[in-house]
């Protein structure tokens, strides 16, 4: 009976992929890492504990269904990244619940995991592992990654000798094909636009990003690029100082946000 219901749900495509209920995140900011053990001990002994807390995200509830593309807009410091990291499971909620269903990929900055002293080939395999692929899966995608980046001649060159444009091409190419391979059900994109590549690569990369976003996964896209948001998203959430100030039709919400 459960199986039949689950299948029905899948067929009707109304499956809930991401569900937040009153999710909050409070950071305690008396934790200063530059304190040595001695200083910390003295502080504890002296009895003074200045506990400061910062509410990054407060009482957020929304659901995202299969195939929806949700935009997340807000000022710097509004809590967009924190919210995405909460959904991704990188942070733990202080209150409330977050449930996700399916394979999740969180994309923030490209070029993470690149080790300059290793060759391009070694870096592709390493990044692939970090993104969750097995070695043989990376091997399957290897030639695609190299082709797209246009860096065939540099495969066995150490990355520290690459120009910044080459690094961008490598990062984007590796990240894109690895994510494509994983075929995630949920894709969280945290301001990954504005590459440093040249006009030609910029165009190729935008096409690929579009392919990724429209690929059928549930996408939550945080960006300052409002045109991109208007272009792709069917719903927009406006986050301000950790709370939802508005949610709904992209045009509406964006104009409200801009008029603030």
């Amino acid at each position: 009976m459960k199986k039949i219901r689950a299948n029905l749900r899948k067929n009707y495509n109304i499956m809930i992929r991401v569900e937040l209920k009153n999710a909050s995140k409070i950071f305690s900011i008396d934790f200063r890492r530059d304190k040595g053990s001695l200083a910390r001990l003295l502080k504890v002994l002296s009895g003074k504990t200045e506990k400061q807390e910062r509410v990054a995200v407060k009482d957020i509830s929304f659901t995202a269904r299969s195939g929806e593309i949700i935009g997340l807009v807000g000022r710097n410091g509004a809590g967009k990244s924190t919210l995405l990291k909460l959904i991704a499971g990188i942070y733990e909620t202080s209150n409330g619940t977050i449930k996700t269903d399916g394979e999740l990929v969180y994309l923030t900055s490209l070029g993470l995991g690149l080790m300059p002293k290793l060759t391009m080939r070694e870096n592709i395999f390493l990044s692939g592992s970090i993104l969750g692929l097995e070695q043989k899966e990376v091997r399957q995608r290897f030639s695609q990654i190299v082709d797209f980046s246009g860096l065939h001649d540099f495969v066995d060159l150490k990355v520290y000798q690459f120009s910044s444009g080459m690094v961008t091409r490598l990062s984007f190419s590796t990240t894109f094909f690895c994510i494509k391979h994983k075929n995630p059900d949920i894709l969280l994109i945290d301001e990954v636009f504005g590459t440093v590549g040249d006009f030609d690569f910029e165009r190729k990369a935008s096409e690929k990003m579009e392919e990724l976003i429209k690929g059928g996964a549930t996408v939550v896209l945080a960006s300052h690029d409002l045109d991109t948001i208007k272009k792709y998203c069917n719903r927009v959430i406006w986050l301000n100082e950790g709370e939802i100030f508005g949610a709904g039709n992209p045009q509406e919400i964006i104009s409200k946000y801009l008029s603030m």
Binding site: M115, L118, E122, L126, S129
Partner: peptide
């Protein structure tokens, strides 16, 4: 198994890096 395979890849990379140059 996934964690072990990732650990192994990271270990190999770190080992190579230590010998670099």
């Amino acid at each position: 198994q996934k964690t072990l395979s990732l650990s192994f890849s990271l270990a190999v990379a770190q080992f190579k890096l230590r010998n670099e140059g």
